[in-house]
Nucleic acid binder design. Structure first.
Lengths: 309, 309
DNA sequence: AAGTTCCATATGCAGATGATATCAAAGTTT
DNA sequence: AAACTTTGATATCATCTGCATATGGAACTT
């Protein structure tokens, strides 16, 4: 049994007329009759009732029809996916992203991808910036959304996307409004490990020092949710990208920081330099689109226009 | 592109070795290489990376693989369904049933069917006994669960299944326990139309007459839920098969009937006489099974063993 | 009764499929 | 380093499948 036979069967089943079905298939009627007969022989079932000068589906034929249609549809999809993978409009794209991208950048990218290239399937993994660089090097991901600057920027395209503001997540004290730098210093910080972003790490500590406060790092942590959990437990205060504010976490409140000139948190897209799979360029393009489209009031990130170089 | 090519591709993709794949496919290696090359040419995509004396899937190949597998799987299913439809183990079976079957007979049949013949798909329609007879005659259903006796029993196999006891559904009076025949007669009845089961209809009225009570039919109704709704509205009392008791309907209570020798409500399976599609015999067999299996305490219906004639 | 419609059968040809033989490249062993 | 092994590609040929044309036959229509 081959797809051809299923195509023939479906055509005949839909027209119930050998001649017309043959015409639709672009072939003559006799070989079509034979093809159907062959299929019936192989399956050991009559698919059509030939009586009364008219064709009618038998029960077996009626049962086969939807299955045949589905098989043909799948074959067509397979074809389209393979072709699409060739020109970068289908296939898997493995995306690494930092948690700062989780609430705005990533969703808008995924939505845009589904709309524009439904045959592209994003495979998402949250990972820190340095992990992304390593994963790109060893080919584990194709595309990263991370926080520059990067340690090794060789063989990578780095496209600045936006600057995120940092806000504080502090144990809920029942109050609202900003926290002062003195309060933050008193609580101590839950911060990412220095290795994970040495430059930003240093700049944050510097900012405190310049303001005349000495701040203690109570506990390093990597993921946003871990940090929030630690904050809720009263371990200290965390500095997180503003979009994290969307999470409501029992025992934690978010507050802008008063009197402290914290560095902005840059966000960039990274990918291997060319030569790289076409799909990477496609996704970069969609990412660009989704940034332009997303600059309404919903998007708090000042969107630097992304250029694919 | 034919299924053959997909089979070849999947074999090579899974072994990553032309020779072994060819062996698995029962063919020589050279034509397999050609077949793959042909597929790549048609799709316009390289599916394998041939470098390093070893095969490796390209991105396009990796994308195609699951689609190809799925297509082959569907084709296999199509085959199985067609074959199964030939020997009565697959396909649609259109079942008509009276509401008395809704809570015990029908579910156990459907469950057994799913277990024993997952490729058989029951298509269920609730209809009265006389409707079932007509539907069988014109080929709208294949199988019925109804209440004998039937008006025209020509060309039908009738297999007695069980006797259901009738109980009363009366407007909720806050009490529990049985109702008397006098009370029922006073309320009047919500009963099915005589045409829908002349024999039972007559026997019910007779039973009242013999007990010395004249009973008024307040309102004819066909479906169990309609009757319950009318009972709740205080129109009268309904006589329903005991399994209906499972429904809890606001404003209605169920009660056994005291002092009235009501006829039992026979239930039977009906189908066209042979010749008939094999699937009908299969379903009759499963029905039989499910009756035997279901004679635990959960089954209040005394199960007469069903014989397929 | 002749004509029309429609599916099945018969026959022939072209192209695809697969087999055998051979080649080429890369890695392994002696 | 040379011979050998492994593995995929290419060449050539036989076979078979699939489609076309021609024809037959049954059922319904005019």
């Amino acid at each position: 049994m081959e797809l051809r036979h299923l195509r023939h069967f479906v055509a005949v089943a839909e027209t119930l007329h050998m001649g017309r079905a043959a015409q639709r298939l672009g072939m003559a009627q006799p070989p079509l009759s034979q093809s159907i007969a062959r299929l019936e022989r192989e399956l050991g079932v009559k698919l059509f009732e030939r009586t009364h000068r008219r064709l009618a589906l038998t029960r077996a034929g009626a049962s086969l029809l939807p299955e045949a249609r589905r098989t043909l549809q799948d074959a067509e999809t397979a074809r389209a996916v393979a072709r699409g993978a060739g020109n970068g409009t289908a296939g898997d794209i493995r995306i690494g992203f930092v948690s700062a991208a989780l609430y705005e950048l990533l969703p808008s990218l995924v939505v845009s991808l589904r709309q524009e290239f439904p045959m592209i399937r994003p495979v998402l993994t949250e990972m820190a910036t340095n992990e992304q660089v390593a994963a790109l090097a060893e080919g584990t991901i194709d595309f990263g959304i991370c926080h520059p600057p990067l340690a090794s920027l060789e063989r990578l395209d780095i496209i600045p996307v936006a600057d995120e503001t940092l806000i504080a997540a502090i144990p809920d004290d029942g109050r609202t409004g900003p926290v002062t730098i003195a309060e933050l210093a008193r609580m101590g910080l839950v911060l990412f490990p220095a290795a994970q972003g040495p430059s930003l790490h240093a700049r944050i500590l510097n900012a405190f020092a310049e303001a005349g406060h000495d701040v203690l790092i109570q506990q390093p942590a990597t993921r946003a949710l871990t940090m929030l959990s630690l904050v809720a437990a009263g371990v200290g205060a965390a500095l997180l990208p503003r979009s994290t504010e969307r999470i409501s976490f029992k025992g934690v409140r978010f507050a802008p920081i008063e009197g402290l000139q914290l560095p902005a948190l840059p966000v960039a897209a990274i990918a291997r330099r060319r030569p790289r799979p076409l799909i990477v360029d496609t996704v970069l393009g969609v990412f660009n689109h989704s940034l332009e489209a997303g600059t309404g009031e919903e998007n708090r990130i000042g969107a630097n226009k992304l250029k694919t170089a």
